[in-house]
Design a protein around this nucleic acid. Structure first.
Lengths: 197, 197
DNA sequence: TGTACATCAGTGAACGCGCGTTCACTGATGTAC
DNA sequence: TGTACATCAGTGAACGCGCGTTCACTGATGTAC
C-alpha cells in the first residue's frame, strides 16, 4: 500500500543504511537484495520501488558511507587543530578492525570495487579524493603543496591498505592484526610528522 | 578416460594456474568452476576429480601465486644486494596495476579473503608473513630487529594497499592510479631508507 | 470541510539464470599373471 | 614379453539452490471537486 512521503524517505534511508552495512560486511556479491530489504524491515518488492537495481543502491550506500566517515572528522576539525596525526589516530580507532559494516568503505571494498558498475566506482573515487584532500590539507602546514599531495596519496592508500590487511589476517591471527594496525599507526604518524623524511 | 600420471599432474597444474589467474582477476565469487576448467582445457567433472571443492583449488592457487611472486625476488637476492628499495621497485613494476591475474594475491584479495574458507585464509596469511619476513630482512641492515619488523609490517601493508587503491580508481581515472603508485613508491622508498624517521 | 478517486509504495509469489556439485558412464592406463 | 582386467581421470548432462528481477495485486495517501 501507498505510504506517506516521510515514511517513504525513511524506508529509503533504512535500505541505504542496511545496504551499506551488509555490503561492506559481506561484499557486493555476498549480500542479497532480500537480506538487505529484510534488514530494513521491507520486502524485495519495496526495494525495487526505491531503486532501479542492486547496483544503484550500492552506489548510494558507498556515498553515504564515505560521507558518514568523513563527517566525524570534519566535526572535529572545527574544534581543535586538524593535524595529520589526529586524522591517522581517528582512522585507526580500536574498533575499526571489527567494525567492517560501519567502517571505511575503501578498506571494505578495496579489491572488489574494480569489478562493479560505473556509478559505484564513481562514488568510491569521489570518497577517496575527499579523504586525500583532507589529508593534504592537514599536511600542507608542514610542506609545499606538491609534496603534501604526494604524501597524502601515499598515506591514505597506506591507511586503507593496513586496515584491509589487518582484517584479512584477523581471523587466523588476531595478534598479528593488532600488530599491523599498531605498526601502521606509529610509522605513518612518524612519517607524516616529518617533512624532511 | 584415465590419463597418464604426468598428464594428471599437468592437468592439475593447469587448473591451479587458470584458477589463480581467474580468481585474482574476477574475485572468488566472480570466477566459476566451469570457466576455470575450460581455461585449463578440461570440464567441470575433471575439476572435481582433482579437487574436493572450489575452495580447495582457491587455497592451492593462493599458495602458488605467493610462491611465484616471491620467487622472482628470491632469485634476484642471490645476485645483487637485497635492499628494501629494490624490493619496493620490483613490487611497483609498471604492469602490476593492469596485471591483476598474474600479480600479487594480497592486493587482489585484500578485501575478500576475510570471508573465505580457513584453508584460503591460511595460505594468504603464510604468504603475507613470508613477504614481511623478506622486507624485515632487507630493512634489518639499517635498524634494530624490532624496528625493522614494525616497519616491514607497515611497508608491506602499504605496498599492497596502494596497489589495490590504484586498481580501484584506474577504471575511472588512470592518471590518478599512476599518481598513487608513483607516490607510494617514492614515499615508501624514502621512508624505508631513513632509519631516523 | 467532506467525499470520490487516481496514485503509487509496498507485498509476496513467481521467473529465469548461473552457480557449485553430483553422477552414470567412458576408455586409456598400468598392473597382475 | 604378452594378455586380461581392475583402476580411475575425464566427460558432459543433470541436480538443487539462491540470486536479481518482475509482476499482478493491495490499500493508504493525498488531490480534485
Amino acid at each position: 500500500m501507498k505510504v506517506s512521503k516521510e515514511k517513504l524517505e525513511g524506508n529509503r534511508a533504512a535500505l541505504v543504511e542496511a545496504g551499506m552495512w551488509l555490503l561492506q560486511e559481506r561484499g557486493f556479491d555476498g549480500a542479497g537484495v532480500a537480506e538487505i530489504s529484510a534488514r530494513a524491515g521491507l520486502t524485495q518488492g519495496a526495494f525495487y520501488s526505491q531503486f532501479k537495481s542492486k547496483s544503484e543502491l550500492a552506489a548510494a550506500a558507498c556515498q553515504v558511507s564515505h560521507v558518514k566517515g568523513l563527517a566525524s572528522w570534519q566535526a572535529r576539525k572545527g574544534k581543535t587543530a586538524s593535524d595529520a596525526s589526529a586524522f591517522i589516530d581517528q582512522y585507526f580507532a580500536p574498533d575499526h578492525i571489527e567494525n567492517v559494516g560501519g567502517g571505511c568503505p575503501m578498506a571494505a571494498y578495496s579489491s572488489e570495487v574494480r569489478r562493479q558498475d560505473e556509478s559505484i566506482k564513481e562514488e568510491f573515487l569521489v570518497g577517496f579524493q575527499r579523504m586525500v584532500g583532507l589529508m593534504e590539507e592537514a599536511l600542507s602546514a608542514d610542506m609545499p603543496r606538491k609534496a603534501a599531495r604526494r604524501r597524502a596519496l601515499a598515506c591514505v592508500s597506506a591507511m586503507s591498505g593496513s586496515l584491509s590487511m589487518a582484517r584479512a589476517v584477523a581471523g587466523q591471527n588476531p595478534e598479528l592484526a593488532k600488530d599491523i594496525i599498531e605498526a601502521a599507526k606509529a610509522e605513518l604518524k612518524r612519517f607524516a610528522a616529518n617533512p624532511k623524511a
